[in-house]
């Protein structure tokens, strides 16, 4: 049985719904970014070791108005199982950074939707939806962002609306390129759920819930555009591109 269960561990990542880029601070109005995130809940996979599940998500993000952006994404691992899955959401920043070391608070909301409706192999057709609400505190440390908070997951299901909480911490850095951000996040999924007898051997303190690890990469298009068009330098003020490049550079302060 042991190797079969390993596959269940991988497959169960479908339900983790946690492999998304954390939007601690919304993008400025007009700004665009694309993100790829890899990872998921950590499980002991017999014959392989203790590893985060290989879920992958491709996302987009767009600054709408001051302090508000929207995000959307597709989830790649479910496609392997004939399940189409995606999410839409938004992040609202409550206030500007009042002073150094005082955290900025933001509230995020995502709706996940998955269905196997298009899979011809499956007689049983199902749809699944999940709500994720994030409360995030973030601090700017030099050029990096440190954040922490809690997510609340609730299946949108008439029979099961169990609330699952997930505290998280993360760090977002610029690895030497203004247009590139790398995010590493740890998350404790549903720490009140006893997993001692779960089929999958999730890893968590006291067998409660599951720890998750995500690694995300974001490309901010305005910064990349600045590098490509202006070689990274501020363009002349009287050019048309200057308005684009200088007005949409960064996340909210």
């Amino acid at each position: 049985m042991r190797y079969t269960i390993s596959l269940f561990a991988v497959a169960a990542c479908l339900g983790s719904a946690c492999t998304t880029f954390n939007n601690a601070r919304p993008l400025a109005p007009g700004e665009h970014a694309a993100m790829v995130t890899l990872g998921g809940p950590v499980a002991d996979v017999p014959g392989v070791g203790t590893i985060p599940m290989p879920n992958a998500t491709v996302e987009g993000r767009h600054g709408v108005v001051d302090h508000l952006d929207v995000n959307y994404g597709v989830h790649l691992l479910p496609l392997a199982f004939g399940v189409v899955g995606g999410h839409v959401g938004g992040t609202f920043q409550l206030y500007d950074e009042p002073a150094p070391w005082v955290p900025v608070t933001s509230i995020g909301q995502r709706l996940f939707f998955f269905t196997n409706l298009l899979d011809p192999r499956k007689e049983q057709k199902d749809a699944y939806a999940l709500s994720q609400t994030d409360l995030t505190l973030s601090w700017k440390l030099w050029d990096s962002l440190v954040y922490g908070g809690v997510s609340a997951y609730v299946p949108i299901d008439v029979e099961d609306r169990t609330l699952h909480l997930a505290p998280f911490v993360g760090v977002e850095v610029h690895p030497g390129l203004d247009w590139l951000r790398v995010q590493l996040e740890g998350r404790w999924l549903s720490p009140t759920t006893d997993q001692r007898f779960a089929v999958v051997n999730w890893q968590a303190p006291g067998d409660m819930g599951a720890l998750a690890v995500n690694l995300g990469v974001a490309i901010e298009f305005s910064e990349l555009f600045a590098v490509l068009v202006n070689d990274g330098k501020a363009p002349p003020a009287d050019t048309d591109t200057a308005a684009i490049v200088t007005s949409t550079a960064r996340e909210q302060p």
């Binding site: 497959a11 169960a12 196997n116 199902d126």
Partner: peptide, 16 residues
């Protein structure tokens, strides 16, 4: 049954 049991947020077994 295994599929349902592998997640704790009610993912349908038919997905897997």
């Amino acid at each position: 049954a295994f599929a349902r049991d592998s997640t704790f947020i009610g993912v349908p077994g038919s997905f897997l």
